[in-house]
């Protein structure tokens, strides 16, 4: 059974929301990066290693419209899946509950 969908909307360079979320996200759950959190999906950043480490336990998604708005579309880390708003809806439906790390 699919578990929790976590959403994060803060830049990882400004705020600990993603770090905290990843501490609590259990094996097999999913994390969707939206708004400023999509910067966490970029390659060669100071948090990229932590994000790649997290990919071993959880599935990471980034909201493509937010990625594109911020010009990060050619820098997305391998393993991070891009979804549009309809994909966001699908993720909500497929998981038992949604937790927003505001």
């Amino acid at each position: 059974m699919s578990k929790m969908l976590h959403t994060v909307n803060k830049s990882p360079f400004e705020h600990s929301a993603l770090e905290t979320c990843l501490r609590y996200a259990r094996q097999g759950s999913s994390v969707l990066l939206i708004e400023d959190a999509v910067y966490a999906a970029a390659r060669d950043t100071a948090v990229a290693q932590a994000v790649q480490e997290a990919l071993k336990r959880v599935q990471l998604y980034a909201l493509a419209p937010d990625v594109e708005a911020r010009g990060m579309q050619n820098r997305v880390l391998d393993g991070v899946r891009l979804v549009d708003y309809e994909g966001f809806v699908d993720l909500v439906v497929e998981h038992n509950a949604v937790q927003a790390w505001l």
Binding site: K3, M4, Y24, R26, S29, A97, Q99, A100, W101, L102
Partner: peptide, 12 residues
């Protein structure tokens, strides 16, 4: 994490 996982509605 276990407590969170068992919830139906999470208000943040």
């Amino acid at each position: 994490a276990e407590i969170m996982e068992g919830q139906d509605v999470v208000l943040s």
